[in-house]
């Protein structure tokens, strides 16, 4: 239990920030979704033509 209490310590600082940022976060979320929709409308133009061949032939040797 001591463990949990210690972990909660940063909570006050966090909550303050969360309250301030929540409207911004969801607004930003909407914007990101709209941009994603635009990208998905156009994405087929840049995608590899044959996904199955591309994925099958993408074979690498291990490295490092």
């Amino acid at each position: 239990m001591a463990e949990r209490e210690q972990k909660r310590k940063p909570a006050p600082a966090k909550e303050e920030t969360v309250v301030e940022e929540t409207p911004g976060v969801s607004e930003k979320g909407e914007k990101i979704k709209a941009e994603l929709d635009d990208l998905l409308d156009e994405i087929d133009e840049v995608l590899e033509e044959n996904a199955e061949d591309f994925v099958r032939s993408y074979v690498q040797k291990g490295g490092e």
Partner: peptide, 22 residues
């Protein structure tokens, strides 16, 4: 904070979130 409240809000910052959204 973003990961705690709404990870999708980080789609412009973190690779795994951006890739997952896409």
């Amino acid at each position: 904070n973003g990961l705690e409240t709404d990870p999708t809000s980080l789609a412009d910052q973190l690779d795994w979130v951006a890739k997952r959204q896409l």
